[in-house]
């Protein structure tokens, strides 16, 4: 029963990691660089959701605000920074994304202060299912995450722009000579990648705290999940995020709360050593 409870907790935690990993893997697959600003985009999502939640008291509107604000800021980051560096090396883009990350963090720090903030969600009685406690808040968060995921996967697999995004991810040069216009694909990519990171950031904020540093600390587990899931594979990223969330929670009784973050690092090393293309991955090269 104890482990069933950890499993439930892990799944909620896993959704946070999965959303962040999805954002990373989309950017890596299509724009071809590891986006270190993903964590701080999550922080932005956390603050946006908090502001909307305070104003309206609705968690769902918090999710919408997180999605929209982070999507727009990510698009701006693309237009102002990443597009200008589009033909540079992966390292240039990675370093630029670290710069974008610091910029977002600094603006958030100046605007909202560095004190930790929390979602004052009303306490409510958890549902008990066979001895496992599930709070209504967790269910709401899971629903928001599920809607965001459904929107992203629906767009990727059932629309023309999604098809073209997958085509560019698959073979960028071929997409160009087939008449796929990269500009539109990039706009869609950054809106989506930003949006899902924002929703992940809102969940993170609700489950823990909102502070200018909170998203940055998610980068390691998020990258681990993206790699574990096979970098560039959207479904793999979400599954690996859930796996990692559950693994972290399940390991807590053995290694203690403090070290559960280290587990992500151990798993990432193990994956890179044993199966570099991840569990669901494809062979993928980066310049």
């Amino acid at each position: 029963m104890f482990y069933a409870q950890l499993l439930v907790n892990g799944l909620v935690q896993g959704l946070v990691i999965g959303l962040a990993a999805l954002s990373i893997t989309l950017v890596f697959g299509i724009a071809r660089f590891p986006n270190a600003a993903t964590g701080d985009a999550m922080t932005l999502g956390g603050y946006s959701a908090l502001a909307a939640f305070k104003a309206t008291g609705s968690m769902a509107l918090g999710g919408v605000a997180a999605f929209l604000a982070t999507a727009v800021v990510s698009l701006l980051a693309y237009l102002a920074v990443f597009r200008q560096l589009a033909n540079r090396s992966v390292v240039s883009l990675l370093v630029a994304s670290i710069g974008v990350a610091f910029f977002i963090r600094a603006v958030l720090g100046v605007t909202f202060g560095h004190a930790q903030q929390v979602f004052m969600a009303p306490l409510s009685r958890p549902y008990v299912l066979g001895g496992v406690r599930i709070t209504p808040l967790d269910l709401q968060l899971a629903a928001v995450a599920a809607i965001a995921l459904a929107a992203v996967f629906g767009l990727l697999y059932f629309t023309p722009i999604g098809r073209q995004m997958r085509a560019v991810a698959d073979n960028r040069d071929l997409a160009r000579v087939s008449g796929v216009r990269p500009g539109r694909v990039m706009v869609a990519l950054w809106l989506l990648a930003g949006g899902v990171a924002g929703v992940g950031g809102m969940m993170l904020g609700v489950k823990t705290i909102v502070s200018p540093e909170s998203g940055w600390e998610m980068l390691l587990p998020a990258f681990t999940a993206a790699i574990l899931g096979g970098i560039g594979s959207p479904g793999g990223a979400v599954l690996a995020g859930l796996l990692l969330g559950v693994a972290q929670e399940a390991s807590t009784p053995f290694v203690g709360f403090t070290y559960k973050i280290a587990l992500a690092f151990v798993i990432m090393l193990a994956v890179l050593l044993v199966r570099p293309r991840g569990l669901f991955g494809r062979v993928e090269g980066a310049r």
Binding site: P160, I161, R163, R166, A167, D170, L174, A175, G179, A188
Partner: peptide, 27 residues
């Protein structure tokens, strides 16, 4: 060259030009 992870059908659909749904606005 092909979009190796896309099906044959999706490969062909991806190459069709002038799609309103290739922009989020149109979609």
């Amino acid at each position: 060259r092909e979009f190796s992870h896309l099906t044959v059908r999706e490969n062909l659909m991806a190459a069709a030009p002038a799609q309103t749904g290739e922009g989020l606005f149109g979609l």
